[in-house]
């Protein structure tokens, strides 16, 4: 298969995968280009024991991680701690969570729910989003995520806790509130 055929067959899927994780279109486009260039060079290494798509996604993952690491070396303004606003000075809930109504098993198939998840995910700070994507979306073990992002476990736990707390809060406000079930 040559470059043109790869672009036709895989570029959109690779782009979507990269966009979820890198979140900026230009970054995702660059990552797709780097992936296909690397694949072209390494074509002989493709042994056909996985699908071509799986092989390309494997390369893309490395390209994404390289970018995330390069970003991490650029000093960023400290991420605000507003994710922790849910607890007041006493450390207890300002708005105690109430059980969500509805069948959790059905959520996975609900397209509207995933649109809300996407909007909530887009509101996470970059580092939290990257940690959450690798740990939860890609289901990688925590120590593997630490290795990929080049961070300590403590660091990862803090980022994941903030990401989960924020996502939960956003979904409660935009999907489950006020009385649960579908959006107003």
């Amino acid at each position: 298969m040559d470059g043109d055929a790869w672009v036709d067959a895989h570029a959109d899927a690779l782009f979507r995968y990269a966009l979820t994780r890198l979140r900026r279109r230009e970054d995702a486009e660059d990552a797709v280009q780097e992936t296909l260039l690397a694949a072209l060079t390494a074509k002989r290494d493709f042994r056909g024991d996985s699908s071509e798509r799986t092989w390309l996604i494997g390369i893309l993952r490395h390209k994404i991680v390289d970018r995330i690491r390069a970003d991490a070396r650029t000093p960023v303004v400290a991420e605000s701690d507003e994710a922790m606003d849910w607890c007041g000075e006493t450390g207890n809930w300002l708005h105690p969570p109430k059980a969500w109504q509805g069948d959790p098993g059905r959520l996975a198939e609900d397209g509207e729910f995933w649109e809300r998840v996407r909007a909530c995910f887009a509101g996470l700070p970059d580092r939290q989003a990257q940690a959450f994507a690798l740990r939860v979306m890609d289901d990688l073990p925590a120590d593997e995520v630490c290795k990929q992002l080049d961070i300590t476990p403590t660091n990862l736990w803090v980022m994941l806790h903030r990401a989960r707390t924020r996502l939960r809060d956003c979904l409660e406000r935009t999907w489950f509130a006020p009385a649960g079930g579908a959006s107003p």
Partner: peptide, 29 residues
Amino acid sequence: AFADQIDTIETAFRRRAAAGEPALPTSPG
């Protein structure tokens, strides 16, 4: 309730992955 909700969110992601869907719906390619 918080623990159940975190569970609900993560289970939904896992089911979506198991169904072969991309982690999030995304824009056109």
